[in-house]
């Protein structure tokens, strides 16, 4: 069964990071694991970067946009670093594909 994750709903202001605003707080399923990559939040400032796991997460348009979705069952995949993801318990009702 696909593993569900939720994107952290953190909203730090004015820093370089690669987690899109429109996916914050949204739940999806892990599409694939990509391995570890230097953390862009450190690389952007010329700092030595820790390696962070990177995952491709698949969301339904319904989950992202709600009633505004053009076609609720269409999907969107994005790469999200593991430190921006939290596990979602199976019991929680979510709208993952």
């Amino acid at each position: 069964m696909a593993e569900r994750v939720r994107v952290k709903d953190w909203r730090p202001r004015g820093f370089h990071l690669r987690t899109p605003w429109y996916l914050r707080g949204k739940t999806g399923v892990i599409e694939r694991r990509l391995g570890e990559f230097g953390n862009p939040e450190q690389l952007a400032y010329g700092l030595p970067a820790e390696k962070k796991p990177l995952l491709r997460v698949r969301f339904t348009m319904r989950e992202i946009w709600g009633d505004a979705a053009e076609r609720p069952d269409d999907t969107l995949d994005a790469e999200i670093y593991a430190h921006w993801l939290e596990p979602v318990a199976d019991a929680e009702t979510t709208d993952a594909p």
């Binding site: 909203r11 202001r13 605003w21 429109y22 996916l23």
Partner: peptide, 12 residues
């Protein structure tokens, strides 16, 4: 601390 950066434009 909730301002969206201008470049982060998906869905706008």
């Amino acid at each position: 601390m909730t301002e969206r950066s201008w470049h982060d434009m998906g869905g706008l």
